[in-house]
Design a binder for these strands. Structure first.
Lengths: 192, 192
DNA sequence: TCGATTGTCTAGCGGTGCTAGGATTCGAGG
DNA sequence: CCTCGAATCCTAGCACCGCTAGACAATCGA
C-alpha cells in the first residue's frame, strides 16, 4: 500500500514539475519555445513521459491556465478591498488585472489567448476559471448600476480589460496613456 | 518595355492570388491549416514561389491583415452615417465592427491576434491600419465627452470592442447576451 | 545563334507534436 | 533469496512544419 502511495505522490510531483517548467519556459521565451522536446529535456525525462500525464501540449497549456486563474482570483480578492469607496475599489481591481496580465504574459496567454482545451462560460467550466470571474463580479456588482445584471456588467468590464491588456501588450496601443485609458474606462463604466 | 510590363502585371496578379488564397484557406479551415505547402498547391506553384513574393508566412498574414483593414474601414464608414443621432451612430458602428469580426474571423485574427509583422500605433504604421482607426475615431469623436482626448477615447472604445469580439468568438463569453453587452457598452462609454 | 539572365522546381535541412514497441526496472509471491 | 509479471521509461521513427540551396529550363538581348 505504502509503496503505491509513494509512487502516486512522486507522480503528482512530476506533474507539478511539468506544469511549473512549462510556465517558466513560456515566461522566459514565449509559448513558441515550449516544445515537447525542450520541456522534456528540462524536466530530465523523455518526451513520452509528458504524454503519460497530459494528452498533449494543449492540456499542458490548460494546466498552466488553471494555475494562473487561481492566482489571479487571489490577487484580485486581495487587492480590491484595500481601497476606500466603490470607485477606488474598481480602479484597484482593474489595475490589478492589467498588472497581472503584464507581469505574467505567458500565463495570461494560456488563460485567454491560447487554446488550452478548457470550457468557458458553461456549467462544466473548471472551478478556478469560474472563481476568477466571481472575484471580478464581487467588486463590480456594487457599481453595475440599477437594472443592470451584474453578470452581464462584469462580462463587459472584463472584455474591456481584456482588450486593453492584449492590445497594449501586442504594441497595438501606445504604452504611454495606459493609466489614462484605465481611469477613463472606470469613470464611464462604473456607476458610483 | 511592354514585355516587362506584362510580366510585372502577371507577377502582381499572382501576388494577389496568393493573398486571396491564403485568406480563403484561413477562413475555411483556420490559420493553422494555412501551410506553405497547402498554399503553394492551391495556387498551383511550388513553395519557393511564395518566398519570391513574401519573406515568409508572417508577411502573408500581414498582407491579409492590410486587405482586411481596408475593408473594415470601408464598412465602418458606410454603416455609421446611416443612423440618426450620435448614440445610434455609435451603436451601428459597434455592431458593424463586431459583425465584421464575426463574419471574417481569419481576417480579424490576421489583423489583431496574429503576428503579421506590422507596426501599430507608430508613424510607420501602414496606411490601412491608421485609416481603420480613423474610421472609428470619426464617429466616436462626437461622443468622447468634454475634456477627453478623442484619440484616447477611441482607443478605449476599440479595446472594449476587441475584447468582446475575441472573447465571444473563443467561447469565453456566452453568445446569448451579445446584443445586451453591446448596448450596455455604448450607453456607458458614449457621452450623448 | 549563342550566352546570360530570369524564373521555377526538386530535394533537403532542422525543427514540430506525437506514438509504437522494445528495454529496463521493480514489487510480489513462492 | 529468487524468479516472474507488470509497470515504467526510453529509443527511434512517423508525418508534418517553415524555409532554402542548387539544379534545371525558358526566355531575352546581342
Amino acid at each position: 500500500m505504502s509503496v503505491q502511495e509513494r509512487k502516486e505522490r512522486e507522480r503528482a510531483a512530476r506533474e507539478r514539475l511539468i506544469v511549473a517548467t512549462a510556465r517558466e519556459l513560456a515566461e522566459e521565451q514565449g509559448w513558441d519555445a515550449v516544445t515537447t522536446r525542450r520541456l522534456a529535456e528540462r524536466i530530465e525525462y523523455s518526451q513520452p513521459v509528458l504524454y503519460s500525464h497530459f494528452r498533449g501540449k494543449r492540456e499542458i497549456i490548460g494546466a498552466v491556465a488553471l494555475e494562473g486563474a487561481t492566482e489571479m482570483a487571489a490577487a484580485l480578492r486581495a487587492a480590491a478591498p484595500t481601497a476606500d469607496g466603490p470607485r477606488a475599489r474598481v480602479v484597484v481591481l482593474a489595475r490589478t488585472y492589467l498588472d497581472f496580465a503584464e507581469r505574467n504574459p505567458a500565463v495570461y496567454d494560456a488563460m485567454f489567448q491560447l487554446d488550452g482545451g478548457l470550457a468557458f462560460a458553461r456549467e462544466d467550466t473548471p472551478a478556478p476559471l469560474k472563481d476568477a470571474f466571481a472575484a471580478l463580479l464581487e467588486t463590480l456588482a456594487e457599481v453595475a448600476g440599477d437594472g443592470v445584471h451584474p453578470g452581464v456588467f462584469t462580462e463587459v468590464f472584463w472584455a474591456s480589460l481584456h482588450g486593453l491588456a492584449t492590445l497594449t501588450r501586442a504594441g497595438r496601443l501606445p504604452a504611454e496613456y495606459a493609466e489614462g485609458r484605465l481611469e477613463l474606462l472606470v469613470d464611464r463604466l462604473a456607476v458610483v
